[in-house]
Design a protein around this nucleic acid. Structure first.
Lengths: 332, 332
DNA sequence: AAATTTTACTAAATCGGTTTACTAAATCGG
DNA sequence: CCGATTTAGTAAACCGATTTAGTAAAATTT
């Protein structure tokens, strides 16, 4: 017994598709369908467990009730947790999440964006590695409902949910300096997006404020395509340079570095301090001790959904740039 | 400049929709469209950056190239990592993942399943909390492409990707006993699905093999709806009962318990051992020490995709039940 | 009792593609 | 040079819903 369509229902009951559709969409009264007919349809629909084809509905309505969630890696706890909050929130409103991980790869990002657009997602939530791409510019020029989070490009006008990157990083690094850090290195992903640049700025500012000479050799960039090997190489470099503290601009490389420390530099685990943007459960237990900047995940998700919903309701809204305050977690 | 449809393209070029469609689907030669016309179409399509509407395509073809991924919680690292592997694999084949988290809630699970089906997903990958539900039975009776993983119900014939739950748990618990555990409690989610039952069986078997009296008071079940409070209560009970080891049937409650131990029972952290099914990064660093059963995430993803692809290719296949061997991770 | 309004419902267009069935013109074979 | 085949395309149906524009019959108004 295959699935019934609205046409089948109509035929079975000797009615027209129109009537059935009206009733199923709660327009029965408005469209003057008799109570008797309405009941007949609703009863029958329940009996055969009719399930409307959302694809057909989407095509006609030009609305898929789908939201694209584009992130570097959905298995990164930061993005996974935000994803979960978004999912729950949008579930209430009848929207569902299509996911796309990009591994910080520009080409992949463009492809994922195209995929989302071809699938007619109603909105996009994006932690982009390359906000200046043609794909994104094109979306913005069409006023496509779009919110960026975690990453910013100040040259591009758009909705952004961010945190105070510079000042938070400065505070975190200064907290390390307060507890006697003297030579601090930094490891970062390629800072194509301003958030990362700002975090690096925060690091520099902390050094400056504390009259620690800035040595640009101690800022190490790892290539997005080769995180593990890259982090390994740069961590080695910094340790051999004699740093007492390593600063990371995001959790991903920090977690890799913790693993490396415990595997290859077990002896140095107590002598070195880590500072990391983003907080991860594991930091509570791992060595070296990590001073971390915990992003307010719930707030990020909340503001993102607020903006998306406003756009979806009103079709248009002023671009918003919201900067949230993260929490500094010092561990001793 | 709004989006062009195939109709617009055809009109602009003075051709029919049919011709354009043929060419765009690489059927130009087969359908005897002249090279010249083909080139004209392809050039124009590139020029205006035509993007086909996948929704329309899906409706006509009865195929959405979407796969539903139903799990208890996408932010649980186990499900997030498998999700990422599935995403990458299916990306290659042009399939994309729609996600649905259920929080081990039966009603939510049914709703998510219905949502997936209404959206015409081509296949489902499911870590179900309730395999005997009508929704699932109905899908199975229609031979809907469906693979279960992590959870099993032996009464229901279906595709399962599992691990050797009983024997692995037995081995893990015996490893604890070998290092002097004498009184072992267990905390589990409601064991509605057989995998959890089997893990509990493994625990019992280990006790039996080692002539440790089995006390059913020491098996504590926490309600799925209230994980944090529930785990807190049961952990308290076990500690007050004087256990030296706590066994967990999945990572989620183990992680909560580790946090509880470090927050409320810091003094006991060295005196108590944990055993947990599933491995989590954090176990490498946290106290109490955890003996964990690491599920072979890559293999789980690989076998899942293999089966799904086979079904999608051939429309039908024998049900498979694949049981993989997890890795025991002992930490001292 | 005729005109108007309301009730109860339906035919057909539409969304944007794919696909089947067809045609007119050009080419080929004998 | 005539019939068959190939070439190069097109018209229209279809997927399963929504929606616009309409109609026939009943009820109401005048």
């Amino acid at each position: 017994m295959k699935k019934k369509s609205i046409k089948d229902i109509a035929q079975d009951l000797g009615l027209s598709k129109t009537t059935v559709s009206f009733v199923l969409n709660n327009k029965g009264d408005e469209k003057n369908i008799s109570k008797k007919t309405q009941k007949k349809i609703l009863d029958y629909v329940r009996e055969v467990d009719y399930q409307p084809n959302q694809i057909a509905k989407s095509l006609k309505k030009g609305k898929t009730n789908t939201i694209g969630y584009l992130v570097p890696d959905i298995s990164n706890p930061f993005f996974a947790k935000i994803g979960r909050l978004l999912e729950d929130h949008f579930w209430e409103k009848g929207y569902h999440l299509l996911i796309g991980s990009t591994d910080e790869n520009k080409d992949k990002e463009t492809q994922v964006l195209n995929m989302f657009v071809n699938r007619q997602v109603d909105a996009l939530i994006v932690a982009s590695c390359f906000i200046q791409s043609d794909a994104i510019k094109s979306l913005l020029s069409q006023d496509f409902p779009l919110v960026f989070f975690d990453r910013e490009d100040p040259e591009i006008e758009a909705n952004y949910i961010l945190v105070e990157n510079k000042i938070s990083m400065k505070n975190a690094v200064e907290s390390a300096i307060d507890s006697k850090s003297q030579k601090l290195g930094l490891i970062s992903l390629t800072p194509d997006v301003y958030s990362l640049k700002n975090r690096i700025e925060g690091y520099k500012m902390a050094l400056e404020n504390n009259k620690i000479d800035f040595d640009k050799e101690l800022i190490r960039i790892v290539d997005n395509n080769n995180l593990k090997k890259g982090t390994e190489k740069e961590l080695k470099f910094l340790i051999e340079s004699g740093v007492d503290t390593v600063v990371f601009t995001n959790n991903q490389i920090a977690v890799i570095a913790i693993w490396l420390m415990n595997t290859y530099y077990k002896d140095k685990v107590n002598a070195i301090k880590f500072v990391s943007f983003d907080n991860v459960d594991l930091f509570d237990y791992s060595m070296p001790k990590v001073i971390s900047v915990a992003q307010p995940i719930e707030k990020i998700a909340m503001h993102t959904t607020d903006i998306i919903e406003e756009i979806l309701r009103s079709k248009k809204s002023e671009n918003k740039r919201i900067e949230l305050t993260p929490k500094l977690i010092e561990r001793k």
